[in-house]
């Protein structure tokens, strides 16, 4: 049986006894792009740090290409590309030294790809990191992550601090990499247009819980906002556990529901003796609905 290259099962993780990730489970199929959405502090970076083996889960299992990432060695890491959300390369290091480190450590390092990307992003090998803008530092980080042509690529907020052109170019490069070598990518972001552009699958993380994990099309098709109004017996007080979000107005109730959920808008309207109207949501609306406390 072929295991998914990225597998997260029932993972929980806390910091100082405060739960950050709660019973998280998802997998990413080979050759696909998984967009990991969530607000700041929702647990995206913690999840990626577990996937790259910087920290261990307190419960559950994390697997990259079938291995526990915390214990993999240089051999297995050759297939794992990672770009951190923060600047991790010393400011005094020259771009050329960082790339040389990559070239020396990875037998699969593609110098032509690295050179092409350097030229494309107009980066000089002689510059030190401290003299680069935050966006340029991220671009070097991105080159370091993809030039070894990894099989699994983990990108933590790759487009943060980038101008719109560089952001678009990075996304194009990710797509090209997948076309070339069938790389599996997971990238975290809160920029929805990036996700819509490249992701096959989407996971929305809110307060450490994975609210949804499915394909973009399926997500857009299956989540609806339903407004109930014209109640004959007053506003109902009962909770609907299947609703992602419930907003009670003065004379209406709005629920965010899955169309496939057992409690359909029709049965609810019948139970509450009211009328209802259904509205399709954009990805941004869905994200906001799922992410709000």
């Amino acid at each position: 049986m072929n295991e998914s290259p990225i597998l997260v099962q029932n993972v929980s993780r806390s910091y100082d006894k405060k739960p950050v990730i709660k019973n998280l489970s998802f997998s990413v199929e080979s050759g696909s792009i998984y967009g990991f959405l969530g607000r700041n502090g929702s647990g995206k970076t913690t999840t990626l740090r577990m996937l790259v083996g910087l920290i261990k889960p307190h419960a559950g299992t994390v697997r990259i290409m079938g291995n526990d990432p915390f214990f993999i060695g240089a051999e297995e890491r050759q297939w794992l590309g990672y770009m951190s959300e923060k600047a991790t390369i010393p400011g005094t290091t020259r771009v050329g030294s960082a790339l040389k480190l990559g070239r020396d450590l990875y037998p699969t390092w593609d110098p032509a790809l690295a050179d092409a990307l350097l030229a494309k992003y107009d980066l000089s090998l002689k510059k030190r990191f401290s003299t680069l803008s935050q966006g340029q530092q991220r671009l070097v980080g991105f080159i370091m992550a993809i030039a070894p042509r990894p099989k699994v690529l983990l990108l933590d907020e790759p487009a943060a601090n980038l101008d719109v052109v560089a952001r678009r170019e990075i996304l194009d490069d990710i797509l090209e990499l997948i076309r070339d070598c069938g790389c599996t990518v997971i990238f975290s972001t809160h920029i929805l247009s990036d996700v819509e552009r490249v992701a096959d699958q989407i996971g929305v993380l809110a307060q450490g819980n994975l609210r949804v994990s499915e394909s973009l099309d399926s997500l857009k098709d299956s989540i609806r906002q339903v407004r109930f109004f014209g109640f004959q017996n007053g506003i109902p007080k009962d909770d609907i556990p299947e609703s992602f979000r419930t907003v009670r107005g003065r004379d209406d109730v709005t629920l965010t529901l899955r169309t496939s959920s057992l409690t359909t808008p029709e049965t609810l309207a019948q139970r509450w003796a009211c009328q209802h109207e259904t509205r399709a949501l954009s990805l941004e609306d869905i994200f906001i609905e799922l992410s709000r406390n």
């Binding site: 390369i89 010393p90 401290s130």
Partner: peptide, 17 residues
């Protein structure tokens, strides 16, 4: 640590080492 650090742990641990 990246600003002045000599040996950035996160950067090096996430390479093929």
């Amino acid at each position: 640590p990246a600003a002045t650090g000599l040996s950035p742990t996160e950067f090096l641990l996430t390479r093929a080492v």
